[in-house]
């Protein structure tokens, strides 16, 4: 299963970026093989609005089935849901740890956006 984790740097050792739309990059991990690659999210960093929507499109294009992040706003959540991607919020620590927690089923799926519409 392919998952995307919002991250501050482009490695598994990086900390999870708590922001979804404005994270530095996504680490896309194949949980079966452990293969991973970093996908830049740079184009969003300075968007006044719609960063979450664009990020959702980016991860959707990667063909992931789940997104793990700190917080997710309503627009991003709606876009991810429409794309059939599950959202897991409240992640913290390193990307590698987060992947392990996900595999063990320790993360709970979000049923709705957990933060107000972020404009930044």
């Amino acid at each position: 299963m392919k998952i995307a984790i919002s991250a501050r740097e482009q490695t598994l050792k990086s900390l999870v970026d708590l922001r979804f739309g404005r994270c530095n990059c996504f680490i896309v991990v194949d949980t079966a093989t452990g293969d991973y690659r970093a996908v830049s999210n740079n184009q969003n960093l300075n968007a006044a609005q719609g960063a979450g929507i664009q990020s959702a499109e980016i991860v959707s294009r990667q063909g992931v089935e789940a997104v793990i992040t700190g917080h997710c706003g309503p627009k991003a959540f709606r876009t991810l849901s429409a794309a059939g991607i599950k959202v897991f919020t409240g992640a913290e620590g390193t990307v590698a740890d987060t992947v392990e927690k996900f595999k063990k089923g320790m993360l709970t799926e979000a049923e709705e956006a957990d933060v107000e519409g972020h404009w930044i």
């Binding site: 404005r22 960093l45 300075n46 968007a47 006044a48 609005q49 404009w119 930044i120």
Partner: peptide, 10 residues
């Protein structure tokens, strides 16, 4: 101006 504000804050 909204985008520039975002950039400055970021």
């Amino acid at each position: 101006s909204g985008k520039l504000v975002s950039l400055v804050r970021n």
